[in-house]
Design a protein around this nucleic acid. Structure first.
Length: 798
DNA sequence: TCGGTTCAGAGTATT
DNA sequence: TCTGAACCGA
């Protein structure tokens, strides 16, 4: 402790000047936020307003003015990327090692705490973390064990139920069940938790829930952390769920200062439990004295911002903010209507090509879409034209099957009770342990109340001896790697398990072998980044979890074991224990799934969903598929809250663009095997017409069977097939598209209707024309139905 | 144990 | 329409 303080004070002299210089670079509002007194604060940070900068400068300022030591800081984010970003910027600002700080994701920090206090948390010190995939597998296994019908209880829905309950901070016993089905789910939830406990594994939500329970139950520990973390800083506060907010409250107590940064207008994750209401709750419950708005935007030109402002003003539920910039108005926002999704894609390719020809970098161009399914058509067009692109999302490194297999061996070595890992690799590579053998093993284990590993010896017959051989293999792996460093362990295991040999003999296994070798590298960089001394055996305790602490080594007294242990963290929490590099690496693999695709360095067009674009920015942004039913998505149209979230999503999309923004929609689109006629998104109509520039000719609609569409269009389409008159289209930008169906049927998407039998609802899609025209109607009571318009007697209403 | 066929489902996603 | 998962036969 003494050493740490001296270190800080020494750093101070160097730092103070630097931090003051950093303050000079901030605008008034930012500086006000950074230099707030040590009281709870909420910073409403608009898109591109320098949120991360404020957060990191605040930390640097607290430290350099001596108000806090690195050791007293806890900063929490949602993604590893954000945590890394914060750490990187911080080390650029401060000449001191930021290691004493707790900077990380909610899950990463919870994991760190549970590792250090696993006994108090009721976990084995080798506990493993299940990612979503592992969790689903565990649930399927549970349902099979309990002979629960898959039809009655789909594994995915149980997973959803369990995670939902945990994210609300509820154990099975605390879930209110008023109907039979819910009662059944609650029972299964309890059984799932028992299974996890037996196997020494925790899922993502469990990390936080356990950590919260630990703090709630263990007063000395709670007081220790409260006394330690005088400053708690939270990024993207609007995304916190109930459990995360409770965790923060427990950690902050009366003594700590909470500094929360967020933007209610960018709350787009309610579907995964995020509660914007936490912002208001925070303000109220903590009697927040300082509410600061960051409204100056450093990213986009004014036309783009004004569109964003105008759009979001249509939302009722917001704290209120208006972005501005001094960057100049810039170009108008371009709007493009296409006949169909293929034509939209083709136009996109041509536009991108001409941008590139003008000197724009492909990597500065983003193509955004509402749902992943839309990417295929776009990819196809880009691919056929040879435009390099990169799609975000998809399989990440640690999620690959071969990597999962290797990790399963490592997990089994670390924790033999991990039945999920056992089942994953007992017969991979194939060693003659068939489904029947495994079934009898599972029966055996159930009878004796032990894990699969422990029961493996007692299965009779040939299957039994093969099981015994597998158990021996794992035991040998463990014995042979005793003195090896982590990368060496990984290298040994991928060979000795037979994984490398197996994939090498496969026709298309070369890439998988390379991935396995890459896992060794990943282990090596992990060791390097975590500051684990080279050559440290992988099973030797070194640190309190991922991102272990500074080199200041303090002696801590382990109250339980009564022995003195080395804790590298300068603070010794009561009863804290160390963890091994292997356990830390396995946790790291679960908590950070890694990159999803190679080719990051190449100059490629960036393709992603609007959700994954949050936090990013690009010179040029193409926002595609702006159609009713798609964006806003039909599942959200009926519910006002849902519609507001869609609008926020659109707001996020618009504010990604620095210089140029394209908004694009198509009259028809192939969806679920049907051609759908969609109206353009209502969000387009919520933008100020004066800021928009309509591109190209009004496309001619698809001729329908019911006669000449040309006559319908001739009168209104002055600019048809008149390429020169591109901007003339602005004269009539709001004649709705897709009249092909709209006029022919007399109905439109979004219209409220009533049906004699089904009651009231809203039209979410229209397809076909003439006698074949059908409308998809979402009824308030009866769900969504397709109705033939020639037959069903719909009445307009509302 | 693999490979083909069938069938359901189809929103957004981090840890 | 397309995809992934599950199931069945060789």
């Amino acid at each position: 402790m003494v050493a740490a303080h001296a270190q800080v004070r020494q750093a101070l002299n160097v730092t103070q000047g630097a931090a003051l210089r950093l303050l000079e670079q901030l605008n008034d509002r930012q500086r006000e936020a950074v230099t707030l007194p040590a009281e709870h604060a909420l910073v409403l940070a608009g898109a591109g307003s320098g949120k991360t900068r404020v957060l990191t400068t605040r930390i640097a300022w607290l430290i350099s003015t001596g108000q806090a030591s690195p050791h007293g800081i806890l900063a929490v984010t949602f993604t590893n990327k954000a945590a890394r970003e914060m750490l990187t910027r911080l080390s650029a600002m401060l000449p001191i090692e930021p290691r004493g700080m707790w900077i990380g994701t909610f899950h990463g920090l919870a994991n760190r705490m549970l590792r250090a206090h696993h006994r108090d948390a009721g976990l084995p010190h080798t506990f493993q973390i299940l990612d979503s995939q592992d969790q689903l597998a565990a649930i399927k296994r549970l349902l099979r064990t309990l002979n629960v019908d898959d039809e009655k209880c789909p594994p995915k829905s149980l997973q959803h139920f369990v995670n939902g309950a945990k994210e609300e901070g509820r154990r099975a016993g605390a879930v209110e069940a008023y109907d039979e089905h819910t009662r059944r789910m609650v029972e299964l939830y309890a059984a799932y938790d028992e299974q996890c406990q037996r196997e020494g594994v925790v899922d993502f939500a469990e990390l936080l829930l356990r950590s919260r329970e630990l703090l709630a139950r263990n007063a000395p520990l709670r007081e220790h952390y409260r006394a330690r973390f005088r400053h708690i800083l939270v990024d993207e506060f609007q995304d916190t769920n109930t459990l995360q907010y409770e965790w923060l409250k427990l950690l902050a107590g009366e003594s700590s200062v909470l500094f929360a940064v967020g933007d209610d207008d960018q709350s787009i994750y309610s579907f995964r439990g995020a509660r914007v209401a936490n912002m208001a709750a925070f303000e109220r419950e903590f009697r927040v004295a300082h509410l600061i708005r960051l409204e100056q935007n450093y990213r986009s030109h004014a036309n783009i911002l004004d569109c964003a402002n105008a759009l979001i003003a249509h939302n009722r539920n917001r704290l209120g903010k208006n972005l501005w910039t001094d960057a100049g108005e810039g170009e108008p926002v371009r709007v493009r209507e296409s006949l169909g999704d293929a034509q939209e894609a083709q136009w996109l390719v041509e536009e991108i090509r001409s941008l590139v020809a003008e000197g724009w970098m492909r990597s500065d161009i983003a193509v955004l879409y509402r749902s992943n399914a839309q990417s295929r058509v776009l990819e196809h067009a880009l691919f056929s034209s040879g435009v390099p692109y990169r799609v975000y999302g998809g399989l990440r490194f640690f999620e690959r099957a071969e990597i999962k297999h290797a990790l399963a061996y490592l997990r089994l070595m670390e924790n033999p009770d991990d039945d999920g890992a056992f089942l994953r690799v007992a017969n991979f590579p194939a060693r003659g342990i068939g489904a029947r053998t495994l079934e009898s093993l599972q029966d055996q284990a159930r009878r004796s109340g032990t894990g699969l590993f422990a029961s493996a010896a007692s299965v009779p017959g040939a299957g039994g001896s093969r099981l015994a051989a597998f158990v021996q293999l794992v035991a040998r792996l463990r014995a042979d790697t005793q003195a090896l460093s982590l990368p060496e362990v990984v290298a040994h295991v991928i060979e000795a398990s037979g994984l490398v040999a197996h994939y090498r003999s496969e026709r298309e296994g070369q890439e998988r072998v390379e991935n396995l070798r890459e896992l060794v590298n990943a282990a090596a960089s992990f060791v390097a980044e975590e500051g684990i001394a080279t050559g440290t055996p992988a099973n030797l305790g070194v640190a309190g979890g991922p991102r272990p602490a500074s080199s200041t080594v303090a002696q801590a007294f382990d109250s339980r074991a009564g022995s003195t242990v080395v804790e590298t963290d300068a603070s010794a929490a009561p009863g804290a224990v160390q963890t091994t590099p292997l356990a830390a690496f396995l946790a790291h693999a679960s908590l950070e799934a890694g990159e999803n695709q190679a080719g990051e360095g190449t100059d490629a067009v960036q393709m992603m969903t609007v959700h994954s674009a949050k936090g990013l920015e690009f010179d040029a942004v193409f926002l595609t598929g702006l159609e009713e039913g798609l964006f806003p998505h039909e599942n959200s149209i009926v519910d006002p809250q849902g519609l507001e979230e869609e609008r926020r999503l659109m707001y996020v999309a618009i504010t990604r663009a620095r210089k140029r923004l394209y908004l694009s929609f198509a009259q028809t689109r192939m969806l679920h095997g049907h051609t759908r006629y969609n109206l353009r998104s209502r969000f387009l109509d919520e933008l100020p017409p004066a800021l928009l520039k309509w591109l190209g000719a009004r496309p001619r609609p698809v001729p329908g069977p019911g006669g000449g569409p040309a006559s319908r269009w001739g009168a209104t389409s002055a600019s048809i097939s008149d390429g020169r008159g591109a901007s003339d289209a602005r004269h009539e930008p709001f004649a709705r598209s897709a009249e092909a169906s709209g006029r022919a049927t007399g109905w439109r998407v979004g219209q409220n209707v009533a049906h004699a039998r089904f009651g009231e609802g809203v039209i979410v899609a229209i397809e076909g024309s003439g006698e074949d025209a059908r409308a998809q109607v979402r009824f308030e009571r009866e769900g969504t139905k397709w109705l033939a318009l020639a037959i069903a007697r719909l009445e307009p209403c509302g």
